[in-house]
Design a protein around this nucleic acid. Structure first.
Lengths: 369, 369
DNA sequence: CACATTGCTGTAAACGTTTACGGCGTTTGG
DNA sequence: CCAAACGCCGTAAACGTTTACAGCAATGTG
């Protein structure tokens, strides 16, 4: 790991000044002969530009930070998946922060913008406090917030429309004949929790259904907590015939508990998740889920930031991504068409009755087809 | 976004030299009075240290890169999830690269180490070519490879033991009475593809089972491709009674296609995945999967790198993470115990026979319980 | 009281670039 | 043939830090 070559090394070897080396390296007009010498020297030495020195001088790091609340959450990962290629294509590197859903960490990240190790930041805060706003107003680099931020805050903003999203889902359930539609939510003091809770209430109202507190249960945005909340809700309101879950993980927990309780999905209880993550398609029955456009939001955020980095002075912009309902089996019972069963489209399905329930491993004996 | 304060600004305001400011900021011995003045000035100006300048001088960026092959792959995400907190705790930032499984991008990342924008790199290459090795030998910063690298390469190395992993799975299937065990693999010119394919063959041999080419199908490490491969395999070898899938996504594709073909899992065909991702637990039937310890490997890699950053000259180290078989319903038919169905442990499950198959959405009418 | 020691501080150099500026040699125009 | 114009190039300053070194005042020692 011997000290790498610098433009000084190259200059010496090529017999020119460091200014010339720099000019050649940056493609500024230079005599052919000099270009040749410098290139040769650079090649022989295996020279690579020092990004740090370059950043110091140019005041551009070509790095962008993305602060996600939770590295485990598929919704944020969907954003990440879109953000990454957009930045890469534009020649930016991605610095990844995880704030573990704690506000102090989010503030830390905003504060650290002062260190100028990135040119901008994309952040998706779980809650937006007054302190957040204050830091945003004084931020030392452009910030894009994924989530909602009060009008007048000098940052670009990408929003989901969870209100419409929840309405889509509730309307769908209503159209399927469900009338006792419960909700399983995450904490109400988070931005998504509050928004989704309110939207649920509103959607019921629009449909003329009563808002019944016993049909609402608060847990957290994780599978186990979601399951627990559903168990509680089932105990309290056994007549529930549909569950609006505030995210897919909660919905998976719901499926677990419903299965254990012997309730059929969707015949007895229909289930809807939110975020339309990979898990929704993987589960069985596959999960009807409200897509809040995480991927699109990520992409939009990255593009807003890049644009802002190019034209620094623009007015702050607001982008709202419309929701979409991905209808799957957990409400309709209809599994989406699988891959063309190439070469084996034998019509009559060999479904047997007692498909589930055997338990001891050593009872198994593969029934050849 | 007015130009932020620098130590020069502070020095002027506090009436001291920049050297003193720096000393105070770094906690070097200084007169109380000076400390007070500097701190006051720094506070009033909202000073934050410029990380770039600091890095240039100190030759330490406090950044580490993680190059993953595919931001969508849950196995890499599991690594990421462990790497992130380890680095954060040690005061390092994480720069995330996605190489999209193309070798040239991996080489690029290795090359870019010369820019010295990170202190070290963790990389999980899909294949290790001669060019990789050459770059690794000349790398300008410490590298940890997750995957396998020939002995003598001067990098730390964290390996999974997929050979034992596959063996665990095949033995498990064999113990369940399966004798026609197929394999659905990814491309053989990738490191995991080659290793898993060979391990499968070897495991069969150990058990005295014949290696039958018609039971092996190559697709790619994704769900749709996996499904297609399984459809093909079913057509060719309908008697197959177990499928060893080279990762969980392929296994999900297998479940899709088996369901569509009316084969029951596990009664007709048992399915095993690899990587034990979140998807394995989410699917239904839940997926028996070989955990290759992605999380543990990520953690180990991060720790190796940090250690290397502290003691630069150490011998390269090799860590092998043992595999584990997560047994679930896709082989035993036994769903893992769900959450204690709090307050509703009604014993007899109300399983009905025709649980699946209704198709038209408007046929639905929630049967209240 | 002279001198060494101690404790703080400021000046300046360095990290590796980019870039404004001036100088020099060659070409061009009158 | 001289002056102006032009093309290249090198010197030096700057980006914002850290740190070696030297200077200086106050203290301690003989």
């Amino acid at each position: 790991m011997a000290d790498g070559p610098t433009i000084t090394t190259i200059a010496e070897r090529a017999g020119v000044s460091i200014a010339s080396v720099s000019r050649v390296l940056n493609g500024l007009p230079t005599r052919q002969e000099t270009v040749r010498k410098v290139m040769a020297a650079a090649d022989e030495l295996g020279y690579v530009r020092n990004a740090v020195a370059r950043s110091l001088k140019s005041r551009r790091t070509h790095q962008v930070a993305f602060a996600m609340a939770d590295v485990g959450n598929p919704a944020y990962l969907a954003m990440l998946r879109q953000i990454q290629p957009v930045l890469k294509a534009a020649g930016y590197r991605l610095v990844l922060h995880s704030t573990d859903a704690v506000a102090a960490d989010e503030i830390d990240v905003l504060h650290s913008l002062g260190e100028r190790y990135v040119d901008g930041l994309i952040m998706s805060p779980l809650r937006v406090t007054e302190q957040h706003l204050e830091m945003l107003r004084g931020a030392r680099a452009p910030v894009v917030i994924i989530g909602s931020v009060p009008e007048g805050t000098p940052v670009d903003n990408v929003r989901a429309d969870s209100r419409t999203g929840v309405k889509l889902a509730v309307d769908h359930l209503h159209a399927l004949g469900r009338r006792r539609i419960g909700m399983v939510n995450g904490p109400l003091d988070t931005v998504p929790g509050a928004a989704r809770g309110a939207a649920y209430r509103e959607a019921l109202e629009t449909l003329g259904l009563p808002y019944d507190e016993s049909l609402v249960e608060i847990g957290d945005f994780y599978r186990a907590e979601g399951g627990r909340a559903v168990a509680e809700l089932l105990r309290r309101a056994p007549e529930v015939d549909a569950l609006m879950c505030a995210n897919d993980l909660i919905a998976l927990g719901a499926l677990d508990v419903l299965r254990a309780a012997g309730r059929r999905v969707p015949q007895d209880v229909a289930v809807v998740g939110m975020d339309d993550t990979d898990l929704a398609a993987a589960s069985w029955p596959s999960l009807t889920s409200v897509s809040l456009g995480s991927a699109e939001r990520g992409k939009a955020a990255a593009e807003l930031l890049l644009d802002r980095l190019r034209h620094g002075d623009r007015e702050p912009r607001l982008v709202t991504v419309p929701p979409r309902l991905a209808v799957r089996a957990s409400t309709t019972g209809e599994e989406p068409a699988p891959y063309r069963a190439e070469g084996r489209p034998r019509a009559g399905r060999t479904r047997r009755s007692g498909a589930a329930g055997r338990t001891r491993a050593d009872e198994m004996e593969g029934g050849r087809s």
